[in-house]
């Protein structure tokens, strides 16, 4: 699925990353705890999060995540958008909750996201 399809499925606003609109994304990760993102993510994912602070952008950058969606109508401040822009990322804001945003992306065709053994 292309980034432009993600924006459409989430009825989102693209805050930066117009040059990323035709990038293909096959998997997604929804999380508010960034250590979980680091423990879990192995693929080229879109990160959905309600965590609006610089750590979400920094974690995404470290994990080579190029698309970040802020759920629940949260709007990141300008300095966060600027940091994402410097890192070459796309940032999307959506009115949908985490549950609905993940559901809409699943329904639209994103199936990857991985599993992790219970330990």
């Amino acid at each position: 699925m292309k980034v432009r399809d993600i924006v459409a499925a989430l009825e989102g606003i693209l805050l930066t990353g117009e040059d990323m609109l035709d990038v293909d994304i096959e998997a997604a990760c929804g999380a508010d705890l960034m250590s979980d993102v680091m423990a879990f993510v192995k693929e080229n994912v879109v990160l959905l999060t309600g965590l609006v602070n610089p750590q979400s952008i920094r974690t995404a950058d470290l994990m080579d995540i190029r698309v970040v969606v802020f759920v629940r109508g949260k709007m990141p401040p300008k300095d966060m958008i600027a940091e994402a822009q410097r890192n070459g990322m796309a940032v999307i804001a959506t009115k949908y909750s985490m549950f609905l945003a993940c559901g809409r992306l699943y329904e639209a065709g994103i199936r990857g996201g991985g599993t992790r053994e219970i330990r």
């Binding site: 705890l33 960034m34 250590s35 979980d36 680091m38 423990a39 602070n53 750590q55």
Partner: peptide, 17 residues
């Protein structure tokens, strides 16, 4: 700290991994 997205108790295990 949890509100900032950390403190999940995954830090040292993530380092080890």
């Amino acid at each position: 700290i949890r509100e900032m997205g950390f403190g999940a108790g995954m830090g040292l295990p993530n380092m080890e991994r």
